[in-house]
């Protein structure tokens, strides 16, 4: 991440990491998530889903900060992100079925779903 100056609490703040999950068959290719992802994690895929839409795909897996903006803005309930611990972030994000099996969501995430 680029900063115009180094924040004073740079050392204390932990940037969360997330992993994007896409429900490909629900997607209608509106592009909202791609447009508004603050970290430009997503691009439109060239592939088609069964309905003929282009779903997004993750291009900067390690950059996701689990802000869940994609989840909120998606009109088709087709995308969401889950938190991953720092160690897993770079490798796991966006691709690993194993990571999907384990539930890495922090407690506040659970609270939001309850």
């Amino acid at each position: 991440m680029k900063y115009w100056r180094k924040p004073l609490d740079f050392g204390d703040v932990k940037v969360p990491h997330g992993e994007v999950r896409i429900l490909v068959e629900r997607c209608k290719g509106c592009g909202f998530c791609v447009e508004y992802c603050p970290k430009d994690v997503l691009v439109m895929s060239e592939e088609f889903n069964k309905k003929g839409y282009h779903p997004p795909k993750v291009v900067k897996a390690g950059e996701c900060v689990n802000c869940n903006l994609c989840e909120m803005i998606c009109p088709d309930f087709a995308i969401f992100s889950v938190a991953v611990s720092d160690g897993d972030a770079a490798g796991a994000a966006g691709s690993s079925p194993e990571a999907a099996g384990a539930d890495p969501r922090p407690p506040e995430r659970e609270l939001r779903r309850a």
């Binding site: 999950r21 629900r26 889903n49 779903p55 795909k57 989840e71 969401f80 999907a100």
Partner: peptide, 22 residues
């Protein structure tokens, strides 16, 4: 990089909105 085909494991029930929609 990841493509849709790499995500077949994501289930609709995992989406946080699942408890609120049909």
């Amino acid at each position: 990089m990841s493509t849709p085909a790499e995500h077949p494991e994501v289930l609709p029930e995992e989406h946080p909105v699942a408890p609120y929609i049909r």
